[in-house]
Design a protein around this nucleic acid. Structure first.
Length: 527
DNA sequence: AAATCCCGCCAAATG
DNA sequence: CATTTGGCGGGATTT
């Protein structure tokens, strides 16, 4: 497996990659449905996203990624060696991919065929899956069938982010991060692990610690009775979690290692977990690359006492449509039926229920159904909501979680035992997009070991965010923002120097009180 | 040396 | 059994 002469199609194009390269990507008009004109104005005024403008953006954005490669001086001949690693990066690939579709498709249901994409972009299938998975986690696409995905662009992005933020708060991610940052200094282990997450697990499933869930928008990605293979979803879930972290952390900056730790489940990367940690980080980079292509995050560095750490900063939307209540619904019986019905969408073939009675299949189908239920038109949207008025402050995105009232047990009743104890929660939304379904582990809703009721105690010490590669095209020069950490309750002893200097494109001097009192129990305990 | 992260083997999940 | 998906981690590249 030496350096096999790479078979790079269109080597000439490579040569042009000075800046023009970007053009190459966009040159392909691709499919017809390119209805550019119609733009979604209702999408916020703050959003510079427009089908066309976006393309430009993408292109310009692409250059910085590619730019760095002038070291080569391909005098004349097209030495393959020109193709450096960056030319094959996931991020670039993702750019190419994104450039093919409009941000806000007009009802035009762009269909995506993995084979075609892989072929046209000239990459291995595997890579496409990576991209699709994270895009799917944000509902930018949804799997529609075996080798197909449906493009939604950013039409649902706001809603998705709103939900993710909610769930993120619900899980006290903000606090967990603080917790980790706090003790991130000492890499040596002095049995201070007084806290074992023992009490958390009750399910007894082998994958018990798989404390999370997958958030989806049923109304959109209906069908595809496949998307639900519990075990995996790893990348998808990881991606969502990662995004959640940004949405709940105050300075919207998340360092790689903190994120990795949270994603692993428990901080303190014990010797053994070192590998797991490394793997996690690898994945995080993958995800980050596509999020970067989406212009949702940007790479930065966090300089703490101990030195610089790679991190990412959220540069995506900050405010989303508020999600009223978070109510659950779910009719045991009805659900089952609905599911059964919609499970197979084969219009004619009537492929019939080729479902083998194997328990697994069954369990799976039921699980699938659970989400179906949510999207079902007749779904019981008991949004009576007694918004538990825990209102936040100023007009910002106020998200209320309404603890579902009674009948909890019932809804979970039909959950197959072996099926991971995920509880679907229905989140009715206004935009008529249909309810959201959030699957959460019952265990997580309960007391969380490291969840201190107290507000975050900003454990960021003094950190400095610096621009990565230095040349940040966009304006907004750096500016030191003295981030005022929240009150430091007596709980955390030391922790003094709390001036966070953000030396980067800081969009605003945030000073929002965290206020993360999640009503914990909007979930139904599994019987 | 540390940060990135490409590549693709190979095991599940599906068909 | 053939494919489609997609964990996972060695190790090549960059920084």
């Amino acid at each position: 497996m030496r350096s096999q002469a790479e078979i790079y199609i269109r080597p000439k194009i490579r040569l042009i990659k000075k800046r023009p390269l970007s053009l190459v990507c966009v040159l392909r008009p691709t499919m017809g449905p390119f209805t550019t004109p119609k733009k979604r104005m209702e999408v916020t005024s703050v959003d510079p996203w427009t089908p066309t403008s976006n393309l430009k953006m993408l292109i310009s954005a692409a250059s910085p990624e590619i730019r760095n490669r002038e070291k080569e001086l391909c005098n004349g001949e097209e030495s393959e060696k020109l193709i450096s690693r960056k030319d094959k990066s996931l991020g670039l690939l993702c750019h190419k991919f994104l450039a093919r579709y409009p941000d806000y498709p007009d009802l035009a249901l762009c269909d995506i065929c993995l084979d075609d994409v892989a072929t046209e972009l000239n990459v291995e299938r595997r890579r496409i899956y990576d991209i699709m998975n994270v895009l799917e986690s944000l509902h930018i696409v949804s799997r529609s069938a075996k080798n197909r995905y449906t493009w939604h662009g950013r039409t649902k992005l706001s809603e998705t982010l709103a939900i993710l933020k909610q769930v993120g708060e619900e899980h006290r991610y903000g606090q967990q991060m603080q917790h980790i940052r706090q003790r991130g200094l000492d890499r040596e282990f002095d049995g201070e692990e007084k806290e074992n997450e023992v009490a958390v697990d009750v399910d007894g499933g082998e994958q018990s610690q798989r404390e999370l869930f997958f958030v989806e928008l049923p109304g959109v990605e209906f069908k595809a009775a496949s998307v639900n293979s519990r075990k995996d979803k790893s990348l998808r879930v990881m991606s969502q979690k990662f995004v959640m972290l940004f949405l709940v952390s105050n300075p919207r900056v998340v360092s790689l290692d903190v994120a990795a730790k949270i994603l692993i489940g428990e901080d303190h990367v014990s010797d053994q977990d070192k590998n797991k940690f490394k793997t996690k980080v690898r994945r995080l980079y993958d995800i980050a690359n596509v999020l970067r292509s989406l212009k949702l995050i940007e790479k930065v560095h966090v300089t703490e006492d101990r030195g610089r750490k790679p991190a990412f900063e959220w540069i995506g939307p900050e405010e989303f449509p508020q999600v009223k209540d978070l109510t659950e619904a779910l009719e045991p019986c009805a659900s089952v039926e609905n599911c059964a019905k919609n499970l197979f969408s084969s219009p004619r073939g009537k492929r019939s229920f080729t479902r083998h009675p194997s328990l697994i299949k069954l369990a799976k189908s039921i699980q699938d159904d659970r989400r179906k239920i949510n999207s079902a038109p007749s779904s019981p949207v008991r949004s009576s909501s007694h918004s538990m008025e825990q209102s936040k402050a100023p007009g910002a995105n106020t998200i209320h979680l309404t603890p579902l009232a009674g009948q909890p047990a019932g809804s979970v009743a039909f959950l197959p035992a072996q099926c991971s104890p995920l509880i679907p929660v229905l989140l009715p939304q206004q935009r008529g997009g249909g309810p959201y379904a959030v699957y959460v582990h019952p265990s997580s809703l309960r007391s969380n070991p490291l969840s201190r009721p107290q507000p975050s105690s900003l454990a960021v010490r003094s950190m400095t965010f610096e621009d990565k590669t230095g040349q940040s095209p966009s304006a907004a020069r750096s500016q030191s923002v003295s981030k005022e950490p929240d009150v430091s309750p007596a709980v955390f002893k030391r922790q003094r120097s709390d001036s966070v200097k953000i030396k980067k494109t800081q969009h605003q001097s945030v000073s929002v009180p965290v206020q993360t009192l999640v009503p914990a129990g909007y979930l139904i305990p599994i019987s």
